[in-house]
Amino acid sequence: MRLEYFQLLDRIVELDIANRTIRTEATVPLESSIFQGHFPGYPLMPGVLLLETMAQTSGWLIIAVTKFERMPFLAAFKEAKLRNFIPPGTTLSASAKLEHEGSGFAVAQAEIRVDGKVTCDCDITFRVVSFPAPDLKTYMQKEAERLQFPMGAITDG
């Protein structure tokens, strides 16, 4: 996890296209400039970045379902709950289920667990569009390699 680069996931550990589910993992870094302000003497993973972690997890599921042809952009969070403080060094297990694939949009339910316990959850709406720039698609494909995206799940699914 590199907070400053918005790389909030370390790896994709499960991807089930048939059941429209995904699970990712990431460990909150021990050091980050973000903790200088959030908060001095009491570092915590910012809630907005926990939401972003769930959005990125859901987003990779949508990219998988659309076979790297479409890019999800965050549109709305609903019923977002941040149930516990997350200090540096915590390993997060994020998961998402695609609830609905509409025309140009998608809705997912996502959560983050720590040691098996749900610490955050929300419903997320995305606009889903064709990649608006070739460089973005190239970047996402490179990111997929970093995250150990299981390409076989797409070709098999």
Binding site: A75, A76, H100, G102, S103, G104, F105, V107, T125, R127
Partner: peptide
């Protein structure tokens, strides 16, 4: 988008919004 989501679910269809 919220309305389309609710309509899709209520009627079991997919409104072709993009089209």
């Amino acid at each position: 988008l919220d309305i389309a989501f609710a309509i899709d679910k209520a009627f079991g269809i997919k409104l072709p919004l993009e089209q």
